[in-house]
């Protein structure tokens, strides 16, 4: 054996991921001491499952799914090991709110507490009950942890492919590998789970993010949905604002869309202070931040609308 140095990018990426595993184990154990059950998402669960061929799979934070009722005790547990709140995306206007982000200053550790999976329409409480009945227990960096069960993991691969801009390549590669790894019966069971969770549309849209997934979606006879447009927009490099507007329109409930648009135009003060740090300096600074935001949004209105209209009216194949 030898002590590792920076020998190659793959080694560095892997060593970094192993360091994250130590932090994940610590966080899971802290939550467990507080009586909070958690399920490790993404990161190590995907690396072990789909990257056993030695290709490095980078990850830089800890993703934990918890029951919605456990967010507060989980927050206390994370504070007890040095984490502080970075962002609760429930205050972010137009966001598909699903997690609370915690950071630790000393070592830069980040824990994302997920209380729902984006794309799942079942209530977060009911979804947690469903997802937490089929987990796999294993050791991670010395701690006993839970991963999602096989079909929930496969579902999450597809759901994850509908999100993200910068890290999208990772989600798509994960999905590609997952499609090779899960057999037809497994995908049928995954589709059943998606239906039970109210995630069929998002599941279908996520699968269609790549050609291999489109074949699986066709074999499962999954419907095309407006969410598929969302995925296609991301693939074509549409702006975050265009994607956010498309997501709003996908809700298909006029009142919800109107409320969400109001939130985008008039986000809560907490969010403004997070997004525009100078807004915390006083009322005048806050007012200025709102004005900046409206100016930026106003400039973008026409291109964003054009992009969304084009995405919804362009003919597309399947």
């Amino acid at each position: 054996m030898r002590d590792v140095l920076a020998e190659s990018r793959a080694v560095v990426v892997t060593a970094h991921a192993l360091a994250r595993d130590l932090m994940t184990a610590e966080a899971v154990q802290a939550l467990r001491r507080a009586g909070v059950r958690s399920v490790v998402l993404k990161g190590p669960s995907i690396a072990r499952w789909l990257y056993a061929d030695g290709h490095p799979r980078p990850y830089s934070d800890t993703d934990l799914l918890v029951g919605p009722a456990d967010l507060e005790p989980a927050a206390d547990a994370l504070r007890s090991i040095g984490y502080s709140l970075f962002l609760d995306d429930r205050i972010a206007p137009g966001a598909d709110a699903h997690h609370v982000v915690w950071r630790r200053e000393g070592d830069g550790a980040v824990v994302e507490l997920h209380w729902r999976l984006p794309g799942v329409r079942l209530s977060p409480e009911a979804a947690w009950r469903r997802l937490s009945t089929e987990t796999e227990t294993t050791y991670l960096a010395g701690a006993e942890v839970e991963f999602l069960g096989l079909h929930a993991r496969a579902l999450h691969l597809a759901l994850h492919a509908t999100q993200h801009g910068e890290d999208r390549w990772k989600a798509l590669e994960d999905l590609r590998r997952g499609i090779r790894c899960v057999d037809d019966a497994g995908w049928r069971a995954t589709a059943q789970m998606a239906a039970a969770l109210g995630a069929r549309d998002a599941f279908a849209a996520g699968l269609r993010a790549i050609p291999e997934g489109a074949a699986v979606a066709a074999a499962l006879e999954l419907p095309r949905a407006r969410l598929s447009t969302l995925v296609e927009m991301r693939a074509a490099g549409a702006s975050d604002r265009s994607v956010a507007l498309q997501r709003l329109l996908s809700q298909q409930q006029p009142l919800a869309v109107a409320r969400a648009l109001l939130d985008v135009a008039f986000p809560p003060v907490d969010y403004m202070r997070f997004r525009y740090p100078e807004a915390g300096k006083g009322r005048a600074a806050l007012a200025l931040a709102y004005a900046r935001r409206w100016w930026s949004q106003g400039r973008d209105v026409v291109p964003v609308l054009r992009r969304v209209v084009r995405a919804n009216t362009e003919p597309r194949g399947d």
Partner: peptide
């Protein structure tokens, strides 16, 4: 006691 990955 140990966490590991295969790489290259």
């Amino acid at each position: 006691a140990v966490e590991w990955r295969e790489v290259e």
